[in-house]
Design a protein around this nucleic acid. Structure first.
Lengths: 214, 214
DNA sequence: GGTCTTCTACCCACTTCTGGGTAGTCCCGG
DNA sequence: CCGGGACTACCCAGAAGTGGGTAGAAGACC
């Protein structure tokens, strides 16, 4: 982007409240222009293809298409747009996935609006921006990062676990042996360094694993 | 309040983003005046005592003093102020507690800003306002409400369960026998009609049971 | 071709949970 | 004073989960 131009920002958040609020706030800054808002990733993507924003501010928790999955779509469709994720959570998983998927920034929703503006300016300038707490999380994750992304199968197991299924039922559902289901569960615990089932449930809920019904 | 006067609104939310956004949006309506904002219930209360707002818009999820507990404080200090709770959750528990504590309205954060304005107008007029989904929840709760309130002890157990404790550990922590802990857990399941531990965890998370550390 | 990961599956001993009871004490409200 | 809820505690047999292994097949990567 040329210096002196307004920074074109696109907002995506499923809370109209946040969307309108953010828009209203950002519009008080004359070097920032909100070129569009969307309530979900899908419509946001279409909009983005038309308006080609400099910066995309996107909520990480969205129903249909999660923010994290959406990052990839945006990166392929409009690679020049810098993506900043907005989140309520400072969870490792979210943060590192976002970064790994190519987000240029990650800010928590409890930061001040000034900080959001800084974030927008910073990423528009080609740099990356992470709110204070986030950076720490990234650093600590550096050490043991290879340990936690789950395999698809493990996600299946976690989804069923979340639904309250026992190993036996999980095995039946997935058409595998009970022993295998147990193995997967063991691996999950080892991998995530979570000792208890309760912990796994919380992990699943925190990390957007969806309840498997099948 | 006299007709023709602006509706004085006080906002309390621990997310500066929501706070600023809401303020910016509400200020575009000339019959509404945001007389103050606060990031937590405590400071909000002090502020409210000074400015005597007509309507208080308060987030239900706040760290120190939860929004629900705060309702009572506000009701005693400034009974004339109408309270509208803002929440991300449509959980029965939250909604019914809010209403029982004396909230005049309950709106979900995923509603449009227009609806928020309607809510403010409605409660300022002495009526109550509940966003669509909320009313249903209240009604359904009417039928089977006696079935689920937990006893304090059961909440303790649930909190520890949430922390991933086994019956044995729970028993030690609470200074009771393991058998008793098991009995409580059984009663919880029976009472809530939840068969699995995973289900209990989700229930606990949904209903604001906090993780016991002790 | 060798290495690595993923998914599968099994062994074993041990612990924990489950679901069905019963039952005593305490305290509150009618 | 009696009923009922809350909290406590125990019995039991069977089901489920834990934690430690090992290991083969398939596919990906170099």
């Amino acid at each position: 982007m040329k210096k002196g131009d307004k920074i074109k920002v696109l907002l995506i958040d499923n809370h109209p409240l946040v969307l309108d609020g953010l828009k209203a706030v950002l519009e008080t800054f004359h070097h920032i222009e909100v070129v569009g808002t969307a309530g979900q990733a899908q419509t946001g993507l279409e909009l983005a293809c038309q308006v080609r924003p400099d910066v995309l501010l996107m909520d990480i928790n969205m129903p249909k298409l999660s923010g994290i999955d959406a990052i990839e779509l945006f990166k392929t469709q409009i690679p020049e747009t810098r993506i900043v994720m907005l989140s309520m959570h400072d969870s490792r998983e979210y943060i590192s996935s976002s970064v790994m998927h190519g987000a240029a920034g990650y800010i928590l929703k409890d930061v001040s609006t000034d900080e959001i503006v800084s974030a927008i300016e910073t990423v528009a300038d080609g740099k990356t921006y992470f709110s204070s707490g986030v950076f720490d999380v990234l650093m600590e994750g550096q050490a043991s990062n290879a340990a936690d992304p789950l395999t698809p199968r493990e996600r299946d197991i976690l989804g069923l676990l979340l639904a309250g299924k026992a190993n036996k039922t999980i095995a039946e559902t997935l058409g595998i042996s009970q022993a295998t289901a147990e193995t997967h569960r063991k691996n999950l615990k080892k991998k995530l360094k979570i000792a208890t089932t309760a912990g796994l449930i919380r992990y699943a809920l925190d990390h957007g694993i969806s309840t498997k019904t099948l």
